[in-house]
């Protein structure tokens, strides 16, 4: 995974709360292969009308927001389903950082696993950033080392879980790290079998319980 240190890019306001994962990528697109890219499906029903024409009231369709890599939104961004496809849609569209006061837990975790920074800011700073962008600011600078966001004449702090920060700064992948603990895992499994013999599923010959 590519390390994330600083990002100086076009920023787009999305002044809504509860932008859920069903909106980030509607379920009907999730049968597609990731190889084709999910960027075209990002916020599809918000960006396009029934005829597939871009909606003029969607900020992502504004000329000055084309190529946005930063999204600023209101509370509870990414709530809902665990579909990592919501993050794939953002990443494939080109977004590397979302800024909001709070996130769905599973979304935030999925984001970090794909190198996307879920930056947490206060409600007050969020409103100031949204206002700045809606007043015409078109870029923002996110510094993950310094934990600051600059946009027009604003400088606001943000937070991110320290473990996630380290992971993003280094572009680490969990699986390689976990494999370095394979002996500890095997030892745990062996001891656990003694401690909790009932954990192992029974293997029925027929499976017909009552509902």
């Amino acid at each position: 995974m590519k390390p994330f240190k600083t990002l100086d890019a076009i920023a787009c306001p999305l002044p809504q709360s509860n932008v859920d994962t069903d909106q980030l990528i509607p379920a009907r697109f999730m049968k597609r292969s990731r190889a084709d890219g999910y960027g075209g499906f990002l916020l599809y029903d918000l960006r396009f009308d029934e005829n597939g024409e871009p909606k003029t009231d969607c900020p992502l369709n504004d000329t000055i927001r084309q190529g946005a890599q930063i999204l600023v939104s209101r509370r509870n961004f990414g709530s809902g389903s665990s579909r990592e496809a919501a993050v794939y849609a953002l990443v494939d569209y080109g977004v590397s950082c979302v800024i909001a006061p709070s996130y769905g837990d599973i979304f935030a975790s999925n984001a970090v696993n794909n190198g996307l920074l879920p930056a947490v800011i206060s409600e007050e700073d969020c409103e100031a950033l949204l206002a700045g962008l809606q007043d015409g600011a078109d870029t923002a600078t996110v510094d993950l080392e310094a934990l600051t966001i600059r946009c027009a004449n604003l400088v606001v702090p943000f937070t991110v879980d320290p473990v996630w920060r380290t992971k993003l700064l280094n572009g680490w992948d969990d699986i390689d790290l976990t494999r370095s603990h394979s002996e500890a895992i095997a030892a745990f499994a062996a001891a656990d079998r003694e401690r909790r013999p009932w954990m192992q599923p029974n293997r029925p010959t027929t499976a017909k319980p009552e509902a």
């Binding site: 665990s82 990592e84 473990v163 969990d174």
Partner: peptide, 23 residues
């Protein structure tokens, strides 16, 4: 019991473990 994303599903399939911070 909790929901996880595809990267974590792959991690559990390969290791039967998951990195978590206690909520």
């Amino acid at each position: 019991a909790f929901g996880i994303g595809a990267s974590e599903v792959a991690h559990v399939l390969m290791t039967q473990t998951l990195w978590q911070k206690k909520p």
